[in-house]
Computed example of a mutant assay.
Amino acid sequence: MIVRIMGEGQVEVAGSHLAELNKLDDELLAEMEGGDESGFRRTLGALLEAVRRLGKPLADESLEPSELILPAEDATLDEVREMLTDEGLIPDSV
């Protein structure tokens, strides 16, 4: 699957990593619902780092359609809330 991190570019991540990313997404959602700003910041960073670590960056000139769009690391709680679906940032299946 192709994941875009806003402000950074695209990364290709194998679907086999979806469970690991969903676990972090669930943690992020719980922290957002609880208003835990420091937990939100920590988990958003961990989620983005996992995508970077598990994925292969696509060339800047590549224009693949993104299946997932994730916020930038410095995104605010409100900005991330606007990006959420019923399943969080990452759906259970892509």
Score class of each variant (00 low, 15 high):
Thr85Lys: 11
Asp25Leu: 09
Arg53Ser: 14
Gly88Ala: 05
Pro65Glu: 11
Glu73Leu: 06
Leu47Gly: 09
Asp78Pro: 00
Ile90Ala: 13
Val80Gly: 01
Arg42Ser: 10
Asp74Gln: 11
Val80Lys: 05
Glu79Pro: 03
Leu44Ala: 10
Leu58Pro: 07
Glu82Asn: 12
Met83Tyr: 12
Gly88Val: 03
Arg41Pro: 04
Leu47Glu: 13
Leu84Pro: 02
Glu73Ala: 15
Glu87Ala: 13
Thr76Val: 03
Ser62Val: 08
Glu82Gly: 05
Glu73Phe: 01
Asp86Val: 07
Gly88Met: 03
Glu61Lys: 00
Gly35Cys: 05
Glu61Ser: 00
Pro57Cys: 05
Ile90Tyr: 09
Ser66Trp: 15
Leu28Met: 07
Thr76Glu: 02
Ile90Pro: 12
Leu29Lys: 08
Leu89Arg: 09
Leu84His: 11
Arg53Lys: 14
Leu29Cys: 12
Met32Cys: 04
Leu84Tyr: 07
Glu33Thr: 03
Thr85Gly: 15
Glu79Ser: 12
Leu28Lys: 04
Ala59Asn: 01
Leu48Met: 11
Val80His: 02
Leu84Thr: 01
Glu27Thr: 06
Ser66Met: 14
Pro57Arg: 13
Arg81Trp: 15
Leu68Arg: 06
Leu89Ser: 10
Asp25Pro: 01
Glu67Tyr: 00
Leu89Lys: 12
Gly35Leu: 10
Asp36Trp: 01
Glu37Ile: 06
Leu70Tyr: 04
Val51Gly: 10
Arg53Glu: 15
Lys56Cys: 07
Arg53Leu: 13
Leu77Gly: 07
Ala46Leu: 15
Thr43Val: 15
Glu31Trp: 04
Leu29Arg: 15
Lys56Arg: 15
Gly39Asn: 08
Glu61Arg: 00
Leu48His: 12
Gly39Glu: 14
Gly55Pro: 00
Ala75Val: 08
Thr76Met: 06
Pro57Val: 12
Asp74Gly: 05
Leu63Gly: 03
Glu37Ser: 04
Leu48Phe: 13
Pro71Glu: 08
Gly34Lys: 11
Ala30Pro: 01
Ala46Met: 14
Glu61Met: 00
Glu82His: 07
Asp86Trp: 01
Gly39Ser: 10
Leu77Phe: 14
Glu49Met: 05
Val51Glu: 14
Pro57Asn: 13
Met83Trp: 13
Gly88Ser: 07
Gly39Ile: 07
Glu37Leu: 08
Ala59Thr: 00
Asp36Cys: 01
Arg52Asp: 09
Ile90Asn: 08
Leu44Trp: 10
Val80Asp: 09
Asp78Trp: 02
Ser38Pro: 02
Glu27Leu: 12
Leu68His: 09
Pro71Arg: 14
Ser38Ala: 13
Met32Arg: 07
Glu31Gln: 07
Ala59His: 01
Leu29Asp: 10
Asp74Ser: 05
Glu87Arg: 01
Leu44Tyr: 13
Phe40Met: 07
Gly34Ile: 00
Ala72Phe: 05
Leu68Tyr: 12
Phe40Asp: 08
Pro91Tyr: 12
Asp36Arg: 02
Glu31Asn: 13
Asp36His: 11
Pro57Gln: 10
Ala30Glu: 14
Asp60Lys: 00
Asp26Thr: 07
Thr85Ile: 06
Leu47Pro: 08
Glu49Asn: 08
Lys56Met: 11
Glu27Ile: 02
Ala75Cys: 03
Ile69Glu: 14
Ser66Cys: 15
Ser62Gln: 11
Asp26Met: 03
Arg42Ala: 07
Lys56Trp: 08
Ala59Trp: 00
Gly39Trp: 09
